[in-house]
């Protein structure tokens, strides 16, 4: 080890403090900690993520091999537990995302905190997320809420939906944002416009929750009853993205449709397409509506606790020199 004993102990202690405070926070609120599988048959369908694939060989009379992957998030397993009737659960799980550049804020392997609560929605979840981060960091910060669709409408004059491709292309021209290619998905055009024009105006706020995403950017979240936005939010500390929280989609048919679209996007991008998780789809109808869930990067929370700007600074085995 190149780090001195005192540097190693400091880094270990930062993680102990963070995970102790996380567990204390959830247990005091009646959540149960669960352990979920890391190697699964359906590791995730998000078009921009690359699960690490592994071939698993079982031994014995039914010896066989199975193409599997390491989880990019414990989400699917967590939702199956909700389908089994568990109401309030959390987990601290190692997750893996191939094709990331290790260093700065990223690693191929990192620790995810996920929690779910049946009967609550994204607004309740935003409040709880702010309280959790304050509890872990020993602070009492205000978390400002910024509505993505409201900001988008203020600047571009409309709230974008799937059918608005032509309008979005026009806006790109008008605001001198690079013209979309023919195969660029609508959600990516929206996101590029947002990043180029709106982001610089909101990021000077030190800590904020960006919420109410356009429907094409819904991911696994529920669409609001008036169809205006998806009930999704992300918390940011400056430019650092901390989490991704939703009022969860519980409509299995809609979920199957979105998985189909994502599988198609993966095929087009020549990425491995893992099978749809039928167990997850079977569990969804048993979830109460609303149910909320959040995924928060623990490494980044430890960075905030340490006052560090680089993920390497908080690890005993710095990610940028691991691979």
């Amino acid at each position: 080890m190149s780090l001195s004993k005192s540097d190693l102990e400091l880094r270990a202690q930062l993680w102990n403090t963070a995970t102790d405070r996380i567990r204390e926070f959830f247990r005091s609120r009646g959540y149960i900690e669960v352990v979920t599988p890391i190697v699964v048959k359906s590791p995730g369908m998000e078009p921009n993520l690359s699960p690490l694939a592994v071939d698993v060989h079982t031994d014995g009379p039914n010896a066989h091999s199975t193409r599997m992957g390491l989880i990019t998030s414990p989400e699917y397993s967590m939702k199956k537990l909700l389908g089994g009737g568990m109401e309030k659960i959390f987990t601290l799980a190692p997750v893996f995302r191939d094709r990331e550049m290790p260093g700065q804020r990223w690693s191929i392997e990192f620790t995810m905190l996920e929690w779910y609560h049946q009967g609550k929605d994204y607004r309740d979840l935003m409040a709880e997320t702010g309280e959790l981060m304050n509890a872990v960091l020993g602070r009492s910060d205000e978390w400002i809420r910024v509505s993505y669709v409201d900001e988008f409408e203020k600047v571009f004059g409309f709230v974008p939906h799937d059918g608005d491709r032509n309008r979005l292309v026009e806006v790109c021209t008008k605001f001198a944002v690079a013209e979309p290619t023919a195969d660029e998905p609508v959600h990516e055009i929206i996101d590029r416009l947002f990043q180029a024009i709106i982001w610089p105006t909101i990021v000077p706020r030190e800590r904020f929750m960006l919420c109410e995403y356009p429907v094409p950017c819904a991911s696994l979240s529920k669409v609001s009853s008036d169809g205006r936005y998806a009930e999704r939010f992300e918390a940011f500390v400056g430019e650092l993205e901390m989490c991704n929280g939703f009022t969860e989609l519980t409509d299995a048919a809609e979920q199957r449709r979105r998985f189909g679209l994502e599988a198609e996007e993966r095929r087009l991008a020549k990425k491995e397409v893992f099978p749809i998780d039928e167990g997850l789809l079977a569990a969804l109808p048993s979830l109460r509506s609303p149910t909320c869930g959040n995924a928060l990067g623990v490494d980044r929370l430890v960075m905030l606790l340490a006052g560090a700007n680089d993920i390497d600074s908080v690890h005993l085995f710095p990610p940028s020199s691991r691979y």
Partner: peptide
């Protein structure tokens, strides 16, 4: 600054 959102390109 590299930006690699959890859900997005």
């Amino acid at each position: 600054q590299r930006v690699s959102p959890g859900k997005g390109s």
